[in-house]
Nucleic acid binder design. Structure first.
Lengths: 194, 194, 194, 194
DNA sequence: CGATAAGCGAGACGGTACGTCGAGTCTTGTG
DNA sequence: CACAAGACTCGACGTACCGTCTCGCTTATCG
């Protein structure tokens, strides 16, 4: 029945227009008030064209985020672990602070399992992999305890950001971020030999 | 113009019926598919009555959570800090796992500043206060570093839960929670004198 | 069941306030947009008080019309039949032109048999009786054909007014009214003996 | 802003279903209790589709009347003026008696200038034109006074019907209609030469 | 190289829920 | 017990978007 469209014949210009319109509207009215109807109108595109390629507005914004993001790239490695972590965390904070697209997709995904899966697979997991990769290097360099659980590390470092976002406790500034990193590393670092 | 109704004349039975209906529907169809229309119908109540006392469906569910919650109560204090933290964290995990009401309100609040404020003031802040109160006792008992920043402690302990919730990384089980607590405490504990 | 209230204890001041408010609102917003709610608010009266004494907004306006009207009084009799008819018809035209109360009640009565009955019995029938009384005098004076049907006379004289009102053909001015009277009387007058 | 829809793409089947449902409901519950909601439900049509093409329920019923009506057609001309008038007047009486659609639209139009204009232009004026055309022929044939004012004729003949409708005096039967026609013609006919 | 099938814009369609309005009823407290 | 105040249920309003569905119109393969 549901015959999937042929991606080869897809109009790239329409795709671009849709993502552009989505971005503009999202900054103007916020993710909550964003509608497919408005995106189509602003992009000069048929609603059908949007529904042909995306299952929901969340999926469109997700793709927009993927377009913009530098997240999934290789982690920075300056040799200074704390500084690199600071860079990585700051990027997430920026995304969640910049406009409502980031928090919007996260909020939508909380009620939409399909979107949640896409979000995790396309944006989150690559970021996690990069993070772990960087930490493993630090571990190899003896900077972290050799038995340190990297999942725990992930939670300790990224957790505070999402905690503060979810409960509106104020996004962490650079200094506070530094403090968090210090504490987290202390939990993961082998006791300094005296 | 918009004259606020007189709370003294409010029908308590309607309020109860609305909250009950909200709870039932939320478990049945999930927060996302919950509608004011359905709540009114199931509660045998006029939509107007709902709109008279709550600004949005999120606000209704928030009040329902507040009704149910034991969160804001005094924190447990068995003397065993790690065990008490486990109890407190488990409660949050339960709330976020039980049904879609908890995550639903959080997701809604991400796009609705008014709801976000209510959520923080009515549910979150009391919990934070209780948490800090417990930690301060531990600090006084020398269990924590005297200079430990309790905000950092909060973030390190609760952050992982919201991190995993927001990104659908799987909610932490008791064991993993224990591991997190161990790590977090290590970051907050004075170095054991050798 | 439906226990009728005791008219003796009725508050005359409330009644006055309701009718006054009705009149003012009717001129301001028109019969169509008139609501019981607004009448109660403007009159400083409980909605219940209105419903206690009147079955519908149409009934209130009807009573207001009855209060204002001079219709039911004795017909003018200057001896000049045509002039007297002109006076009587002009009064109706005035009522239907002045504000939306007159046409409003008529329009409501078209869909509300109870109101229709009240309208006819309280306002219309007395007017008809007065009209016929005047015509009968003319008949006795030989001014009309002795066999003339007064119902027909009523229809011929008043019909045009309601015709033009109902179909929005423009209410007749004094001159046109005169022409109508002339024609109607011609139909009712005995052929002049040659 | 308010972009009018493209009539070319209009669904004729929806239009038919709407008018049919309107007719059925109007006979069943009467014009007063007719609602757009019920029409949409019965017609299996979205409310939006009704609002897209009609401004109000009155407009829908008006179109239904226009669909049904034979009014605007050429007037009958059997050579017998009185008989032809009887035919024409009877048709109006029938429409106003058949169901509540006719009186309903008239009552609505009394409070809605836009509907009133549509009613007059689409239904009434063509009927008036046909009526006058027939009378002009009678005039040419010497059956009416050459100076007779056809507007007066219209008022004298149709007026009684609307008078009795508006004031609920009982719709005229065939005999009474004949009597009215006789009288009206007497007012419009040249004095018979002796 | 011309048919033909696809994506496309436009936007009408059946739906669902929205948030508001007013009707008419009911409750509470006052005089 | 009539009244002012106003909360209540009910039902309809008119609107907004949803996601689906024709329509013609490119446009880009493939027989």
């Amino acid at each position: 029945m549901a015959k999937p469209p042929n991606p080869a014949r897809r109009s790239e210009s329409s795709r671009q227009a849709i993502l552009a319109a989505t971005g503009e509207l999202c900054s103007q009215v916020g993710y909550g008030r964003l509608t497919i109807e408005a995106i189509a109108a602003r992009a000069g595109v048929s609603k059908k064209t949007i529904y042909r390629w995306w299952p929901s507005k969340g999926a469109v914004v997700l793709e927009l985020l993927g377009e913009t993001a530098t997240i999934a790239t290789a982690p920075p490695d300056t040799g200074d672990l704390a500084a690199d972590l600071h860079t990585m965390l700051t990027e997430i904070v920026d995304i969640l602070t910049r406009d409502s697209a980031g928090t919007g997709v996260i909020s939508e995904a909380l009620n939409d399992p399909d979107l949640a899966r896409d979000l995790r697979e396309r944006l989150i997991q690559p970021g996690i992999d990069a993070f772990k990769q960087r930490l493993r290097r630090a571990q190899d360099a003896g900077r972290l305890h050799p038995d340190a659980d990297l999942d725990v590390a992930l939670d300790l470092l990224y957790g505070p950001i999402y905690h503060r976002m979810a409960l509106h406790l104020g996004m962490p500034g650079p200094a506070y971020l530094g403090s968090l990193i210090t504490h987290a590393l202390r939990a993961l670092t082998p006791p300094t030999p005296h």
